[in-house]
Design a protein around this nucleic acid. Structure first.
Lengths: 124, 124
DNA sequence: ATTAGTGGTAAACAAGAGGTTAGTAGTAAC
DNA sequence: GTTACTACTAACCTCTTGTTTACCACTAAT
């Protein structure tokens, strides 16, 4: 359980450490993947969309400028690999996920599960 | 066509639907709790910090203005309950999580687990 | 009398994320 | 010859988010 029921004094000291740890960890996670588009790009790549314009078509509402900067950031952080296929005409660029990005599977799963049920609740 | 039409014909149609669903669900989730402070406020509340200034002390870096607007938004969306204790002097305001906010447990857990390991990887 | 604490709000501003428009160079299809 | 596709990038603008500072009215302690 991520929450602690009681507020009694003996617990305060103990859970405050846990709380600070949680705050820091969640802060780090959101800093890396909390942007509006970051996870969506990763999801689209995970489904085999690995070209620039293909990604832009798959992700509704993203602009070329934002997609470009997202891909750069993801490459910099080791989530995405960029491969230029110079043998093709015109030159084709392929993006793909690294193994490290697989560590995000759990996050994507719980986030999408919660998001789906939450969306149903919002339409009440 | 001078480039391949599909990476995997049979998969394309099937997974594109899944992909769109995932994108929408994750989008909804991030819209609700993807802000810089939203989850941190919830975590602090979950650890028994239920007064305004207490929350501000617990969450490093948050300003009163932002905390105030976060709490308003969370109350509006049904994550937080606001209780004014008029019998006390000075008047005391208590914030607490609703039952609905417990549905976020899985999200917080996976996000904090990933955030913790990611932070270790970043320090390489 | 001064300081600190209660729970905030108002105003002014800064920063950054994201959106819009336009344009690059080359090729291929109509 | 015109359109459309490849993968972007530059410039500009807007809008949200967040910061800072000051302030409210009241109380309790020093």
């Amino acid at each position: 359980m991520y929450y602690k029921e009681n507020t009694c004094d003996e617990a305060a000291g103990v859970t405050d450490g846990q709380c600070a740890n949680l705050l820091a960890a969640v802060g780090d996670a959101l800093y890396a993947i909390g942007g509006k588009w970051t996870l969506r790009v990763i999801i689209a790549l995970a489904h085999g969309h690995n070209r620039f314009n293909e990604l832009q078509r798959t992700i509704p509402g993203i602009s070329a400028r934002v997609l470009s900067s997202e891909l750069k950031g993801l490459e910099l952080n080791g989530f995405v690999r960029r491969l230029v296929r110079a043998e093709a005409t015109p030159v084709v660029v392929e993006y793909s996920l690294t193994e490290y990005s697989n560590t995000l599977a759990g996050v994507v799963r719980s986030l999408s599960e919660w998001g789906a049920t939450h969306q149903q609740k919002v339409r009440e």
